[in-house]
C-alpha cells in the first residue's frame, strides 16, 4: 500500500505539471534567420567525428560504446537523447546526456573519470573534445523526434522540482538567479538575445538545440558548457562537470521543453 501511495502522489503531481499555465502556451518555430544559419551549420562535421568515436574500440578495456544504454536499451540511440535526463537503475541516479556518457566511458571503456572531465570542455577553435562530439552524435540520433522527458520515477520528479527551485534561486553579489535573465520575453544583455525560458517556446528552443555549434568559439558546445558560462556571468565559482545542480536545471528546462522537435546541432552566436 505504501508503494502505491507514492506512485499515486507522483501521478497527482505530474497532472499538476501538465496543468501549469506555462505549459499551455503554444510553441513556435525557429525564426527564419536561425533556419538560414542552420542550413550551413559547421557543427555537422562533429556528428561524423562522434559517430567514429562511438563505434571505435577505445579506452583501457578496448571496447566501443555500442553497449552503452542511454535509456532505450544497449546501443539503441534512436530517440534516446530526447528523453534525457532520466533515471537509470544501474547507477540509481538521474543522469543527463553528459553524465551518462561519463558513466559508460568509465564503466564500459575504463577511462579515468577525472581525465575525461578535464578534457570535456575543449579550447575555442580546437577540434573539440571526445565528449562534445559524442554528445552531438548521440543527440543527432533523435533529430526529428519530440522531446519527451518523463517524470514518472520519483527521482526524476525530485530532480525536476530541484531544477525549478534552482532556476529561481538568487545569490552572489549580482543577486542573479537564472530567471533574472531568462524570465521575460524580448530581453537582451547588451546585444545578446536572452531566451525566455519561462515560456513554453523558449524552453523548447533550449531543449531542441543542444549540443550546438558556437560561432564565436568555432566548436560544438554542450549544455554543461552553457551552464558554466551563465554561472560565470553570475559571479559564482567554477561549476563542476555533471553534478546534480546541472542535471536538475537540465531536467527542469528539457521537461518544460517537451514536444519540441529535436534538431541538433543548434547554431548559436
Amino acid at each position: 500500500m505504501k508503494r502505491m501511495r507514492g506512485s499515486n502522489l507522483i501521478l497527482g503531481a505530474a497532472l499538476c505539471l501538465a496543468m501549469a499555465p506555462s505549459a499551455l502556451a503554444q510553441g513556435n518555430d525557429l525564426s527564419i534567420g536561425r533556419k538560414m544559419l542552420m542550413e550551413d551549420n559547421p557543427g555537422e562535421l562533429w556528428i561524423d567525428q562522434g559517430k567514429d568515436l562511438f563505434h571505435q574500440k577505445r579506452g583501457p578495456k578496448n571496447v566501443s560504446l555500442e553497449q552503452c544504454d542511454f535509456g532505450m536499451g544497449s546501443g539503441k540511440l534512436e530517440g534516446a537523447a530526447a528523453r534525457l535526463p532520466r533515471y537509470f537503475a544501474d547507477t540509481d541516479r538521474v543522469e543527463d546526456l553528459e553524465s551518462r556518457l561519463l558513466t559508460c566511458m568509465t564503466r564500459l571503456q575504463g577511462f579515468d573519470r577525472n581525465q575525461l572531465i578535464k578534457d570535456a570542455i575543449s579550447a575555442p577553435a580546437s577540434r573539440g573534445s571526445d565528449i562534445e562530439a559524442l554528445a552531438l552524435y548521440v543527440t543527432s540520433r533523435s533529430n526529428g523526434m519530440k522531446v519527451n522527458v518523463s517524470l514518472s520515477h520519483k527521482k526524476e520528479f525530485d530532480m525536476y522540482k530541484a531544477g525549478e527551485y534552482l532556476f529561481y534561486r538568487r545569490s552572489g553579489q549580482t543577486d542573479f538567479g537564472c530567471v533574472q535573465c531568462h524570465g521575460e520575453a524580448d530581453k537582451r544583455i547588451r546585444l545578446q538575445d536572452l531566451v525566455h525560458m519561462t515560456s513554453k517556446a523558449g524552453a523548447q528552443e533550449v531543449a531542441a538545440s543542444w549540443p550546438a555549434y558556437r560561432g564565436a568559439h568555432y566548436v560544438v558546445r554542450t549544455m554543461q558548457w552553457r551552464l558554466n558560462d551563465c554561472v560565470w556571468q553570475m559571479r559564482l565559482p567554477d561549476l563542476k562537470y555533471a553534478t546534480d545542480y546541472s542535471i536538475a536545471l537540465t531536467t527542469y528546462l528539457n521537461r518544460q521543453g517537451n514536444d519540441a522537435v529535436m534538431q541538433v546541432p543548434g547554431f548559436k552566436r
Binding site: 531544477g163 534552482l166 553579489q173 565559482p237 561549476l239 546534480d244 545542480y245 536538475a248
Partner: peptide, 20 residues
C-alpha cells in the same frame, strides 16, 4: 535537496563558496 546540490556543485575556496 536543491540546497545540497548547490554546495556540492562548485569547486572553490571557502571565500568563493560564500557567494553561494
Amino acid at each position: 535537496m536543491a540546497e545540497k546540490m548547490v554546495f556540492e556543485a562548485f569547486d572553490a575556496s571557502l571565500a568563493h563558496m560564500k557567494r553561494l
